[in-house]
Amino acid sequence: MRKKNNSIERKQYLRKKTITKVSIFITQVTLVILFIALWEILANKGIIDSFITSQPSRMLKTFMSLSQNGLLEHLGVTCYETIVGFLSGAILGVIVAIILWWSKFLSKVSEPFLVILNSLPKIALGPVIIIWVGAGTSAIIVMALAISLIVTILEILNGFLNTDSEKIKMARTFNANRFQLLTKIVIPANISTFINSLKVNIGLSLVGVISGEFLVSKAGLRIFNSIWRASIPT
């Protein structure tokens, strides 16, 4: 009974949905504009100190002048590092979580180690990482990985282990093997866990990359951070 969208109620329903979507987007854009405008105005009036907080118009000017010095390339480097760190963290995290889900024994064995690793201050590992992989892009990516990987493993494994046991039982009544349980029940049931973990991860990877750049920057935003600081009169 796939009715064409001809009933009035259906039309209204669809319209309402579009309106909600559009208004959410408009509100988001407005909030950003308002924020920037307020910042600019307050800085102009001297209510906030632009030497500390800078000012949108100045940042734009600096951005323009720095663009000629290759800001965009450096931005690109940072993006690239973040994306590589992010993707490898996500992929490795999921693979490890699957292995640990597969073997209860392994997951029990590794549990305390994961917790300890997770509580390590990873940024302090920076110098060690440089010794291991050299002071280059790879060090930065490893830094991003170090920060996001363990959290990803813990979060996704937790989601896997909390899959509705009744659903697993149902699949087992059809004699599903462990691989089928994984692909047909556990993974699809955890799509929202994946998405949540990705959302958190992209931020963590960026933190990892920036802190990596602080340690070993030949390229990337960190260089500009220094140049920019230098260019602000104090």
Binding site: D164, E166, T173, P188
Partner: peptide
């Protein structure tokens, strides 16, 4: 073990 001759409908529907 689990037999292919048996169909088991559980107490909960567990639709995916």
């Amino acid at each position: 073990n689990i037999s292919s001759k048996i169909g088991y409908m559980l107490q909960k529907d567990s639709l995916l």
